[in-house]
């Protein structure tokens, strides 16, 4: 039965359903409810919750526990997630799985608590030193957040790579009806984890080499792209938006279609790997592609432009609607589209 749940509580409960045995984190708005919920929920289930002294310690607690095979996660927001990057790089260097949650707030440095998507480039590009990628899911509803979290540990363990849920302040704070999947647990030994016997740790014995990363990136890119296309097949103009902006964008598509304008929407669900395959459906006659995002100067648009270059014949212009520290309203998207169509608004790429 579906019940109303706050996003941050739902993501925490979903992690419990997915078999998370250990959580370590440090309070930061707007993700603190994840910690608060788990601080009592995990002991109820006989699992371990630990309020760490800082973000770095939290990620290394996860690092140590997942090295031993225990399903573990940490969560943070904006500047707190920046502090975790050192540990995320170490997780990737050692090929350890982990599940990470970033409930984004706006801006660099302290920023503000407004809902935004300004961590997009950092999180899809690795974020720390060296070459690595984190698999990043960007849900646009609380139900989808739950469903993606439910599989996150399995995917992280399959590729021995961290998986991140890229949420947004409003998505963490709002309430929606949710249905939870049943509790599950991984009982089998992963084979490579630390158990004191000094057994082979697989790729850890041979730390990350360029060939190994290429092979891993190729496999993840081939298998894990996820997206949702809406009315793209005959579109003259295609919007690209993920997370909460994709919801207002979808409304804009419906309104414009009612006016007889052929527009569609590509909604990336994985933002790394970026769903290039979604762009195959764009007709060759497309006149423009529009990135709609809660950023200040454009981040998603870089991936959109690369995808358009790869997948669309000719030099299709790519436009950007950057709404800064708020979710773009449907009427703003429709108005922006008017400028694109009339030629008043110039392309970015």
């Amino acid at each position: 039965m579906r019940k109303m749940w706050k996003g941050n509580h739902a993501i925490a409960e979903a992690a419990m359903r997915a078999g998370c045995q250990f959580y370590a984190g440090y309070p930061i708005t707007p993700q603190t409810e994840v910690s608060e919920y788990l601080s009592y929920r995990m002991p109820e289930l006989g699992r371990r919750f630990l309020q760490a002294e800082n973000e770095m310690a939290a990620v290394y607690m996860i690092f140590g526990a997942y090295a031993c095979g225990m399903r573990s996660m940490t969560s943070s927001s904006g500047p707190g997630f920046s502090l975790k990057q050192e540990g995320i790089a170490y997780l990737c260097a050692n090929n350890y799985p982990a599940v990470l949650v970033n409930v984004q707030r706006w801006g660099p440095g302290l920023g503000t608590l407004d809902s935004s998507q300004t961590d997009y480039l950092r999180d899809t590009r690795g974020g720390g030193n060296g070459d690595y990628r984190v698999i990043v899911y960007a849900p646009n509803s609380i139900q989808e957040t739950v469903d993606l979290m439910y599989n996150a540990f399995d995917v992280a363990e399959k590729y021995r790579n961290p998986v991140e849920i890229l949420s947004e302040a409003a998505l963490g704070q709002m309430m929606e009806p949710v249905e939870f999947p049943p509790f599950k647990e991984r009982t089998e030994d992963l084979g490579w984890t630390f158990d004191g016997t000094d057994r082979p740790h697989g790729r850890i014995d041979n730390p990350q080499k360029p060939d190994a990363l290429r092979a891993k990136v190729a496999a993840i890119t081939a298998n894990e792209q996820r997206w949702e296309n809406y009315r793209v097949e005959d579109a003259d103009y295609v919007f690209v938006a993920f997370g909460l902006p994709s919801r207002t964008c979808r409304n804009a598509v419906d309104q414009l279609r009612e006016q007889g304008v052929k527009v569609g929407l590509i909604r990336p669900i994985t933002v790394w790997p970026f769903p290039y395959k979604a762009f195959e459906e764009i007709p060759d006659t497309v006149k423009g592609v529009i990135s709609v995002e809660s950023t200040d100067a454009g981040q998603l648009i870089e991936d959109v432009a690369l995808a358009v270059k790869k997948m669309c014949p000719g030099n299709v212009p790519v436009y950007g609607l950057f709404s800064g520290q708020k979710i773009p309203k449907t009427k703003e998207i429709v108005a922006f589209f008017g400028g694109v169509r009339s030629g008043e608004t110039k392309e970015v790429f």
């Binding site: 371990r48 031993c68 225990m70 158990d195």
Partner: peptide, 11 residues
């Protein structure tokens, strides 16, 4: 110390 803490929690 943080990593060893995680190890001890898991095992």
């Amino acid at each position: 110390a943080a990593t060893a803490t995680g190890v001890k929690i898991a095992r």
